[in-house]
Every structure is written in C-alpha cells, then in structure tokens.
Design a protein around this nucleic acid. Structure first.
Lengths: 198, 198
DNA sequence: CTGCGAAATTGCAGAGATCGCAGAACTAGG
DNA sequence: CCTAGTTCTGCGATCTCTGCAATTTCGCAG
C-alpha cells in the first residue's frame, strides 16, 4: 500500500513542500495578505494556475499539516484498547499531538501569528477543526457502538477538540510557564470526571 | 442609553433587516453561492456598494443575529450572582439561549442548511463563535478574578461554546426526540462534575 | 423654512482569489 | 520509441470586497 516510490508521487510531495516553504517565507517577509498567488507561484517556479492543484486556498498553505494531525489522533486512538473509556483514550491521543506541537514550537508560533492576524486563515483553521470533530464523532460512535441518536460521541469530540484548541491557544499566548502536554493533561483530567462512562 | 429614537437609527435598522430578508429569500430560491451581491442589492433597492456598509461579508447575512446571541449570554451571565460557580452560571446562560433557539427552530434550520452547504459560511460561523469564546474568556476572567496566566477562564469558555455548538448541531441533525434545552442541560451537567471549583 | 455640517449612499475603478477549459508537456510502461 | 494517462499551463471570466471622491440625505439650529 505505502507507495513511497513513484517518481510522480515523490515529485508531487516535494513540490508541495517547496511551495509551502517559499510561501511561508514570503508571508513572513511581507505579510500574508500582501503576498499574492502570483508571487508565490513565481517564487516556486510554477504557473499561478498550478498553485491551486496543490492547495485549495491560499489559507491552506498556513495550515498545511492539519490533515496529519488528525491522522495522528485517529492513529493513536486506534492503538488504545477498545475497553478503555473513550475520554481516557482521547486524552492519550491528544496528549500525543500535544507532544508533537511542543516539539515544534517555533514553527507553530509562526503560523499562529499569521492566523491571529488574518481572519480568513483563522476561519479556515476552525473549519478544518470542525472537520476533525466530524471525523472524530464518527470514529467514537463506532468505538462506543453508540446508537445513531446518541449525542455523546459528538459531545466528546467537540469537547476534546475544544480543550485542545484552548490549551494550545493559552500555551502560545501566555508566557511559557507550563508545558503544553501538561496543560492538555490537566484540562482533560478536569472534564473527565463527568464524562466517565456511567 | 437605548436610543430607540432617531429616524436615522431606525431607518438603518429597518434597511438592514430588509436586506437580510430579501437576501435570505434569494438564497432559499437559488442557493447561496448562486446569489450575487448585485442581485441582493437590486432586490433590496440599494446600490451594490451600499451592501457592504450593512454587512461586512455576504456570509454575515446568514449569521446576522450572532451578535445578539452573545449579548444574550453575557446579559444572562451578569444576572447570575457573583458567588455562583462559573460553570453553573454558564449553564443557565446557555440554557437561555437554547430556549431562544428552540423558539425559532424553523428560522434556524433554514440558516443551518445554508451553513452546512456553504463552507465559507460555516467558517465564518465558527469564527464568530471564536469571538464569543474570546469575549467570554475575558468576562469569566473578571468574574473569577483569575490571574492573567490562569487557563481556566479560557477552558470554561471554550468548553461551553463547544457544548452549545455540539448540542445545537445534534438537535438540528437528528430526528427531534429531545428538546434542545434539555440536551444542553444534560451536556453541561456531565461536564460540570469536573469543572466545579476546587 | 432655510442653511450647515455630519453621515450615508452611490459609482467607478481595480486588485485578487478561484474556477473551467483545452492544449502542451511529461511520466510510466511496454 | 510509442501510447495512454497525468499534470501543468495559459487564458478568460466571475465575484467578492476595497478605496476614493462626488452626491444626496438627515438632524438641527437659527
């Protein structure tokens, strides 16, 4: 399955990263809004039209790795034993992502800055997270063998994503006193009391 | 303070509503994306340019009353005694909004449908909710007299907004079996256990 | 009822993002 | 080297949203 090979695949990936790098550099240099697709394309040596076959939106460049984060969460979730309480499993999974984040604080901070200053990017970010929430909801529904009318899966998904976002925001916003994973752990702990299976 | 008077004020409000009504009608008729600002302007008897002095974005028309919702929440929050636990106060406040929602299910459903079908509107919606979260965070920080590095206010704000959104989504999405206020109450109850003041 | 300053409306021009389409260029295999 | 399948390009078109400056309308005082 894992077609690591294939010149085509590889080139595509490389190019995508190149576009991303070049774009982020321009953003840092002259600001997100002030940077046009044409400039990015020129700097990345592609036709402007081609940009859109790599990214749906200019915003997406800043959020390029959101998809992987979700993948990570789901992966971690699958690793957890089926009989582990959902909330606990979520906690572990998000903790893993929190570690990832913590390991690349600088990269994150840069993107966060753009996000904070650019409404459309912020909006896009939230939209992608809503996507996580949706996928997570489905995943949890399966895991819990929940009835289709059960609000619990969505509640769990929404809450955990919210907790993660709040923690991350807090971490990036205040003088770094507590580590992100700790922050996330604590938050999950607090809410966990009431979310334990009946 | 409430300058209900003033021809100017009133006209502005009336016109805003007229634009909103006309626009919603067009959206229902031909879809959100297929409706242009020009069409709305024509139907509302204003210059296209003028549209943007009433709404920042086409998306905002669909979400016109979000500002009031937040106002309602904050108002309810202020009504609650200062010594009431924050989570409890939030629960009551959101319950009030839930009632509002329940009372206008049809209107809501219509807008929700547009939102679900139109990414940009969904994104905008989430962005506005992030604004709620921000305001709520500040409000709670004051109420709790929290230190500036305390993550709790944001955690509470993020969680409650998430709960509200999840409940609303669930309510609008599944066959109406449980009433929205109940849904919200229950969700708050569950999470409340762990969020009670130490 | 008349004139003035403030506020709102309007038109115009334009930048930019994004999309559909069709032809050109390129890659994987055989 | 040749063919079928992809990807990249270039072009045109549409729309949202903005800045600016001219005009119109409103609220109020004289």
């Amino acid at each position: 399955m894992p077609k690591t090979t294939g010149l085509r695949e590889r080139k595509k990936r490389e190019r995508r990263r190149r576009i991303e790098d070049v774009a982020m550099e321009l953003f840092a240099l002259q600001g997100f809004d002030a940077t046009t697709i044409d400039q990015i394309a020129a700097a990345a040596d592609i036709a402007p039209r081609t940009f859109f076959s790599y990214f749906d939106t200019k915003d997406d460049v800043v959020l390029a790795d959101y998809a992987n984060r979700l993948g990570r969460i789901l992966h971690e979730l699958d690793q957890r034993p089926t009989d582990e309480p959902a909330w606990s499993a979520l906690q572990r999974s998000f903790a893993a992502v929190a570690s990832d984040y913590a390991a690349e604080a600088d990269r994150l901070a840069q993107r966060f800055a753009i996000m904070a200053a650019t409404p459309s990017v912020q909006a896009r970010s939230l939209q992608l997270q809503a996507g996580w929430e949706h996928t997570l909801t489905a995943h949890l529904a399966t895991r819990l063998a929940a009835a289709s009318g059960d609000p619990v899966p969505r509640l769990l998904a929404a809450t955990s994503v919210a907790v993660m976002r709040a923690s991350l925001h807090h971490w990036l916003t205040t003088p770094r006193s507590v580590e992100l994973p700790t922050l996330v752990q604590d938050a999950f702990d607090r809410l966990g009391v009431g979310l334990a299976p009946r």
